[in-house]
Design a binder for these strands. Structure first.
Length: 624
DNA sequence: AAGTTCACG
DNA sequence: ACGTACGTGAACTTT
């Protein structure tokens, strides 16, 4: 047996690395009646479903002892780890989703068996402070948390390992796969990680009690994490034939317009400086500047020069600048091919599925994000072309989605108790001659302020003003976003404030309460959200965005209870994308709707299903 | 690594 | 006293 000793906050801890059958028996004996263990894995990398991926070690630990089991050696090593994985009643894991999915794919354990026995220390930490160190928080990685709660001299096990890799001619990317399984630093740090995780759990519990973090919130987040892991494991099917057809089309488009741009001396359409210089040489005047003072040449600047509106339709206001249009088209085709099409082609697993990395508590407000192989939240929605590449689970399935209607406005009405907004949302029978497609809060607002003669233009104006309120925007920004004049917006905002005076009052009250608590606001689910001192006005947005996230979270819990998890593919802020057998899709969609409909402090939360065809693109206009 | 741009809710 | 658009992920160029 190899053993390492290390100082953790003045105490000597031991890391055991079994080598023989006798060592492994000792390990199993040690683990035998332990009611709880910290758990971690070391693997070849982060792309769990990539070809040749390996689970290298599984570590178990308490406050003073850790065991590093060389799972990669298989045989008795694997058996010993599997034995303890199966028997231990409770595991503490930092960022459990990753280890769940690794163990699900490469050990005898399953996600379904591990999740109910897991306490995730990262979730606990996020419920105390979700911020990264750069944002003024403690951070949510094991290293900053260990340094803060346990031992200021805790080693940066990830960072130090990178240095070890570099000294051996390896890199951060290939080091975890190639380092010798017996390397001392690798094993010591593998052991330290579980010891820190075990100790961290105790510290975080005390902090939860001190701050009053509700155990129900913690349990709920573990449920959500399980559901996200389930969706990540399932992945989505890529239509690889379509991808192969689409790539050359987009590449040709990119090259065609890049060549046009080159005629004006722009060798790279992604170089803002080159584009700005060439446009000025053509006689265009550029006025907008970036934060650092460079001339701005983004889409908002280029579209008007190309005489195109935001939907890329001809305006007819001027002679289109051909360079502006070429740059726009080349950049769009280039982005679509590299950010989407190539990623679909490169990142699918052996079964042709692509696995999004779901981050259930990513944003400061608790919102989820999707990153990695398939950043599914940010696929272009203006065109079906990209989404057409993602298809239903089976040929007999269809893709559908259920989305909340105006969720953030409803949450605002509920939390700020906006009387007339609530009255609108609560109206059981909105006049179909006014609202042919169901109640619409922005039209309702326009009619409230302008009377029954309110037009679509009024609706657009007050929609802008409404979002301005939720986001905390000023007159200037709202004007720029909506395209209306500042005078027009300033009048609209004043009218809006008169119609819904509770919003301003709530903002002041929430800011006052947040200051009294040390610049944090607490949401109805008990989430503690830190605010930036110089942006306290953002409290309205934080509370609404965060509560909307938890409305989706509650809906997700309802879905699991209704046995709908098997159909769920993606959570996208205010919608759930699903794949279901075509024959039952209508009924299933109806069940989803029921799960999403609820009451929030007297405001009805409503949801509508949209049934598509075989591809996700069908919901955006694709024929298939 | 920072800055800019573009994709989404 | 006044006013501040919110939250993400990813690619590419420049430094």
């Amino acid at each position: 047996m190899i053993t390492y000793r290390h100082d953790v906050n003045g105490e000597i801890i031991t890391v055991y690395v079994p080598e023989t059958d006798a060592d492994l028996r000792e390990f199993m004996h040690w683990a035998r009646n332990k009611p709880e263990l910290a758990l971690d894995t070391e693997t070849t990398g982060l792309n769990i479903y990539a070809d040749g991926y390996r689970l290298r070690t599984v570590q178990f630990g308490t406050a003073r002892e850790a065991w590093v089991i060389h799972y990669e050696l298989r045989g008795r090593f694997k058996e010993a780890a599997d034995y303890v994985l199966k028997r231990c009643p409770r595991f503490y894991i930092h960022n459990a989703m990753f280890d769940w999915l690794v163990l699900d794919a490469y050990s005898e354990e399953t996600l379904e068996s591990l999740a109910p026995r897991t306490v995730d220390t990262k979730i606990k930490a996020i419920l105390i402070d979700p911020r990264a160190p750069e944002e003024g928080g403690i951070g949510t990685a094991l290293k900053p948390l260990s340094a803060y709660y346990i031992d200021p001299s805790a080693p940066d096990t990830q960072g130090d390992l990178t240095a070890v890799f570099n000294s051996m001619g390896l890199t951060k990317e290939n080091g975890f796969a190639r380092i010798d399984l017996r390397h001392p630093t690798y094993n010591l740090y593998a052991g330290l990680d579980v010891i820190y995780t075990f100790r961290l759990n105790t510290c975080l519990d005390a902090e939860h009690v001190r701050l009053g973090v509700r155990p129900a919130l913690l349990a709920y987040e573990h449920e959500i994490a399980f559901m996200c892991a389930y969706m990540q494991r399932a992945g989505l099917v890529v239509d690889l034939d379509y991808v192969d057809e689409l790539r050359p089309v987009l590449r040709q488009e990119e090259e065609k317009f890049a060549a046009l741009a080159a005629a004006w001396g722009v060798s790279s359409v992604n170089s803002g400086a080159q584009v700005a210089e060439a446009l000025q040489a053509m006689g265009e005047t550029l006025t907008e500047r970036t934060k650092k003072g460079a001339l701005k040449v983004d889409k908002d600047v280029l579209l008007p020069l190309a005489d195109l509106d935001r939907d890329w339709e001809r305006i007819g206001a001027r002679d289109p600048n051909p360079l502006a249009e070429a740059v726009l088209r080349a950049k769009r085709a280039g982005k679509w091919v590299t950010s989407y099409v190539d990623k679909f082609a490169d990142n699918h697993d052996a079964a042709g599925r692509i696995h999004p990395t779901l981050n259930p508590l990513q944003a400061r407000t608790g919102r989820m994000s999707i990153s990695g192989d398939f950043a599914a939240q940010t696929l272009p929605g203006s065109d079906w072309m990209i989404r057409r590449a993602i298809v239903a689970d089976e040929p007999s399935h269809i893709i559908g989605r259920i989305d909340f209607q105006a969720i953030e406005m409803r949450v605002l009405a509920a939390l700020a108790d906006v009387r007339r907004m609530k009255a609108g949302f609560c109206d059981p029978n909105p006049d179909p001659s006014v609202y042919p497609e169901g109640f619409d809060i922005h039209m309702y607002t326009a009619r409230l302020i302008k009377g029954p003669g309110a037009t679509k233009a009024h609706r657009k104006l007050f929609k802008g003003a409404g979002f301005g309120k939720v986001y905390g925007g000023g007159i200037k920004t709202i004007a720029k976003q909506t395209g209306a004049s500042e005078a027009e917006i300033s009048r609209a905002v004043a009218e809006y404030d008169r119609a819904f005076p509770e919003i301003k009052r709530a903002s002041s009250k929430w800011q006052r309460e947040a200051r009294a608590r040390g610049c944090v606001t607490v949401t109805p689910t008990g989430r503690i959200l830190p605010l930036d001192r110089h942006r306290m006005y953002a409290v309205v947005n934080y509370k609404c965005q965060s509560t909307a996230r938890d409305v989706l979270g509650q809906a997700m819990i309802n879905m699991r209870d209704a046995d709908l998890l098997q159909f769920m593919k993606l959570p996208i802020h205010d919608e759930i994308v699903f794949s279901a057998p075509k024959a039952d899709a209508k009924d299933i969609a109806h069940e989803f709707e029921k799960c999403m409909r609820m009451d929030l402090f007297g405001v009805p939360i409503t949801a509508d299903a949209d049934l598509g065809g075989y591809s996700w693109g069908s919901l955006y206009g694709a024929k298939v």
